[in-house]
Amino acid sequence: MSTLSGYQRELSLPLILGIHEDPPWTTFMRTLVNQTYARRAFLVITLANAMASQEPAVVHVAAGRAAHEPPLDFMRIAAMGLNPYGLMRPGRVYALEEMLDHSNAAQRDQQREALNIMGIHYGRWLRISAPCFADAWMLLVREREDFSSFASSLLSSIIPHFAAALQTFVALSEQRLSSAMAHRALERSGIGQLAFDSNARVIAADPLAETLLSFLPEPGAMAGRRLQVRPHVAVALETACAELAGGPADRRRLIRLDIRDGMNMLLRPSDLNLGKFVPRPSVIGTLKIDARDISSRAVQILSELYGLSHNEASLAYGLATGESIGEAGRRLHLTSETARIYSKRVYAKTGTKGQVDLVRMVMAGLAPFA
């Protein structure tokens, strides 16, 4: 038993770190193949909320002695008419013989022959389920001799731990999805954000901020990064973060990152509620770039919301994103008089009282996020 525990410990770290790998659990599967003396293996993961058209994630692994061999063909094996994966009892290890169709001798013989052609003479299947989250299936195969009882015991012992890791993987995937949606919405509006500690170290930056700015690693053993800016800007940023950290929620500081490029950043005290055990930033920095784009999707949204023609909606979105009536008219190949007529129609249909009111209405709605 102590020997089994030692092997389990060797799998623990790859199981935890595998949540963040792409594809997930590749190192774990390699370690498992080595410990069970398997020749080849695959791991199949299906998410409970995945679209019907989304193919499952498949991780292929081979021992060093089988590195030259093709990976196991998951789809071909699934089409053999073996014991359906969905009917396998979660938490149980199945031997090759248990997966064959013993109710039909001819079918069983065909299955054996097809598996032999693929070099699968001995195998262990197992299904791991995290109910309402995901299902995973593993297949490990050998060629010359069957798996030992120790290998089967090891596979059985890792099932509950892998089920917990699978549930954590799905929860993190959902958080990544939520974060990606929020970042994309801000990016469409030209907004980037950073999180700072009280010493102006960058704790996190969203994708747009990562694209717009340059960073330097924090010297020494300290975690985090710093913005790569001119010395006087770095001093101003450090001073502002120190002043805002823990200060009144309504305080703000404006930092001019680059006067030539017009890049400015608005700092405010962080009000994020992240729970007790999550490092909280002291200050949030917000960037805004000109993201004006006469998007056909935004025009379509305005057309549907207010019953505008295509040209009326395009002119409305142009006015809302900074164009003058003359500029919007020329873009649409309209005369100045026609453009003014269109603008009056837009004001009437949207219930706005002029360009300022139109800008407020459009930019506060869904069109910028289309």
Rank of each mutant, 00 (worst) to 15 (best):
G220N: 08
T168K: 07
L172N: 11
S173P: 00
F162S: 06
I203D: 07
F196H: 00
V170F: 12
E210N: 10
L172F: 14
A200N: 03
R225M: 14
A182E: 12
G220M: 10
T211A: 13
F162W: 12
E210D: 06
L213R: 07
E187A: 15
A204M: 06
A223R: 13
G220Y: 03
T168N: 15
L166W: 06
R176A: 11
A163T: 09
S189K: 13
A209F: 02
R184T: 11
L213H: 01
F162M: 14
L177P: 00
I158R: 04
A180D: 13
I159W: 00
R188I: 09
G192I: 06
S178C: 01
A209I: 02
L166Y: 11
N199E: 12
N199S: 13
L194A: 03
L208G: 04
A209W: 00
L186R: 13
T168S: 12
A221M: 08
N199M: 08
Q193N: 09
L166T: 06
G220D: 11
R225H: 11
A182C: 08
I158G: 01
A164Y: 05
F169H: 14
H183L: 02
R176E: 10
R176H: 14
A182N: 08
S157V: 02
Q228F: 07
I159F: 03
I158E: 01
L154V: 04
E187C: 03
S214A: 11
L194K: 00
A180C: 01
S198A: 15
L213T: 02
E187P: 00
F169L: 15
S214I: 08
L172V: 08
G190Y: 13
S153N: 10
Q193L: 09
A195S: 01
Q228E: 12
F215R: 10
L227Y: 04
A200C: 02
S156K: 06
Q193P: 03
A185F: 03
R226S: 05
A182M: 15
S214F: 09
R188C: 12
A182I: 15
R226Q: 08
V229R: 04
I191F: 04
L208R: 06
F196E: 02
L177F: 15
D197Y: 08
I159D: 01
L155E: 05
S178D: 01
A171W: 07
F215V: 08
L166H: 04
L154A: 00
D206G: 05
P219I: 07
R184Y: 10
S157L: 14
A180S: 13
F215D: 08
E174D: 13
G224S: 10
P219D: 04
V229T: 10
L186A: 14
L186P: 06
V202I: 14
L194H: 00
E187I: 05
G220V: 02
S189H: 08
A164F: 07
G224M: 08
R176C: 01
